[in-house]
Amino acid sequence: ETFPLDVLVNTAAEDLPRGVDPSRKENFLSDEDFKAVFGMTRSAFANLPLWKQQNLKKEKGLF
């Protein structure tokens, strides 16, 4: 299941849709939104070091 970017960005855990893991908001973006937000594919993002993934998520309001 995916959700629009505005539902996930800068949203407190208690305000997220049911079933969304607040530590993994990026997994609930569509592939198109994911690429638009991070400028890379999911596989490229997954290959980044964890610290870099976290920094990007913070920068984009998805942490």
Score class of each variant (00 low, 15 high):
E1G: 11
E1F: 15
E1H: 13
T2F: 15
T2L: 07
T2S: 09
T2P: 05
T2K: 11
T2G: 05
T2A: 08
T2E: 04
F3N: 02
F3C: 05
F3L: 11
F3H: 08
F3Y: 15
F3A: 03
F3W: 14
P4T: 09
P4R: 03
P4V: 03
P4Q: 08
P4M: 04
L5I: 12
L5R: 04
L5G: 03
L5S: 04
L5P: 07
D6A: 13
D6W: 15
D6K: 10
D6R: 08
D6H: 15
D6Y: 14
D6L: 11
V7N: 05
V7G: 05
V7P: 01
V7F: 15
V7K: 11
V7H: 07
V7A: 11
L8E: 02
L8P: 01
L8A: 03
L8C: 05
L8Y: 02
V9D: 03
V9L: 10
V9I: 14
V9H: 06
V9R: 07
V9C: 08
V9E: 05
V9N: 06
V9F: 06
V9Q: 15
N10W: 08
N10K: 07
N10G: 09
N10Y: 10
N10H: 10
N10P: 04
T11M: 10
T11S: 08
T11E: 06
T11K: 08
A12R: 13
A12V: 09
A12D: 09
A12S: 13
A12G: 10
A12I: 09
A12Q: 09
A12C: 14
A13H: 11
A13W: 14
A13S: 12
A13I: 14
A13Y: 08
A13M: 10
E14G: 08
E14Q: 12
E14V: 09
E14T: 08
D15A: 05
D15H: 08
D15T: 03
D15K: 05
D15Y: 06
D15E: 11
L16S: 04
L16E: 06
L16K: 03
L16D: 09
L16I: 06
L16H: 05
P17I: 03
P17E: 05
P17K: 01
P17A: 01
P17S: 01
P17Q: 01
R18E: 15
R18D: 15
R18L: 15
R18A: 15
R18K: 15
R18Q: 15
R18T: 15
R18I: 15
R18M: 15
R18N: 15
G19A: 08
G19Y: 07
G19M: 08
G19W: 09
V20H: 06
V20I: 08
V20K: 04
V20M: 02
D21V: 03
D21S: 02
D21K: 03
D21R: 02
D21C: 07
P22H: 05
P22E: 08
P22K: 06
P22N: 04
P22W: 03
P22T: 06
P22A: 10
P22D: 06
S23G: 12
S23D: 14
S23Q: 13
S23T: 14
S23P: 04
R24G: 06
R24Y: 11
R24P: 03
R24H: 15
R24I: 07
R24M: 10
R24S: 10
R24W: 07
R24C: 09
R24L: 09
R24V: 08
K25V: 15
K25T: 08
K25P: 07
K25N: 03
K25I: 15
E26T: 02
E26I: 02
E26F: 02
E26Y: 03
E26H: 02
E26V: 02
E26R: 00
E26N: 02
N27C: 13
N27Q: 15
N27Y: 10
N27F: 08
N27T: 10
N27E: 12
F28K: 04
F28T: 02
F28I: 03
L29R: 01
L29P: 02
L29V: 03
L29F: 03
L29W: 04
L29Y: 02
L29A: 01
L29K: 01
S30P: 02
S30V: 03
S30I: 05
S30R: 07
S30L: 03
S30D: 09
D31T: 09
D31K: 07
D31Y: 05
D31E: 12
D31P: 08
E32M: 10
E32H: 12
E32N: 09
E32T: 13
E32R: 09
E32P: 09
E32Q: 12
D33G: 03
D33F: 01
D33M: 04
D33Y: 04
D33S: 05
D33K: 03
D33I: 05
F34N: 00
F34I: 02
F34Q: 00
F34V: 01
F34S: 00
F34A: 00
F34P: 00
K35P: 02
K35N: 14
K35F: 14
K35W: 15
K35E: 14
K35Q: 15
K35M: 15
A36F: 13
A36M: 14
A36V: 13
A36E: 13
A36G: 09
A36C: 09
A36R: 14
A36I: 11
A36H: 12
A36Y: 13
V37E: 03
V37G: 01
V37S: 04
F38E: 00
F38N: 00
F38P: 00
F38L: 08
F38M: 07
G39M: 11
G39N: 15
G39C: 12
G39P: 00
G39E: 12
G39K: 13
M40Q: 04
M40G: 00
M40K: 01
M40H: 02
M40R: 01
M40N: 00
M40W: 02
M40I: 08
T41E: 14
T41D: 14
T41I: 10
T41P: 11
T41K: 07
T41S: 10
T41Q: 08
R42L: 07
R42Q: 08
R42P: 07
R42N: 03
R42I: 03
R42M: 06
R42A: 06
R42Y: 07
S43A: 14
S43P: 11
S43W: 11
S43Q: 14
A44R: 09
A44T: 12
A44W: 08
A44G: 08
A44I: 11
A44Y: 10
A44S: 10
A44C: 12
F45P: 00
F45R: 00
F45I: 00
F45K: 00
F45W: 09
F45T: 00
F45S: 00
F45L: 01
F45A: 00
A46L: 11
A46M: 14
N47D: 14
N47A: 14
N47K: 13
N47C: 14
N47H: 11
N47Q: 13
L48V: 02
L48P: 00
L48D: 00
L48F: 05
L48R: 00
L48E: 04
L48A: 01
L48S: 01
L48H: 01
P49L: 02
P49A: 08
P49Q: 03
P49K: 02
P49C: 05
L50H: 09
L50T: 13
L50V: 12
L50R: 09
L50I: 13
L50C: 12
L50F: 12
L50N: 10
W51T: 10
W51I: 12
W51Q: 10
W51A: 12
W51S: 11
W51Y: 12
K52E: 14
K52L: 12
K52N: 10
K52T: 13
Q53M: 04
Q53P: 00
Q53V: 01
Q53Y: 00
Q53K: 08
Q53T: 01
Q53N: 00
Q53L: 00
Q53W: 00
Q53A: 05
Q54V: 14
Q54L: 11
Q54W: 13
Q54T: 14
N55S: 13
N55M: 14
N55P: 00
N55F: 10
N55Q: 13
N55A: 14
N55G: 13
L56F: 06
L56S: 01
L56C: 05
L56W: 04
L56Y: 06
L56T: 02
L56N: 01
L56P: 00
L56M: 12
K57R: 08
K57I: 05
K57F: 04
K57D: 00
K57M: 05
K57A: 05
K57P: 00
K58I: 15
K58H: 09
K58F: 10
K58V: 12
K58L: 10
K58C: 11
K58A: 12
E59D: 11
E59N: 08
E59W: 07
E59L: 11
E59R: 10
E59S: 09
K60W: 06
K60V: 15
K60H: 14
K60E: 03
K60C: 10
K60Q: 10
G61R: 05
G61A: 03
G61N: 08
G61C: 08
G61I: 02
G61F: 05
L62H: 03
L62E: 02
L62D: 03
L62C: 04
F63E: 12
F63T: 13
F63C: 12
F63H: 15
F63A: 15
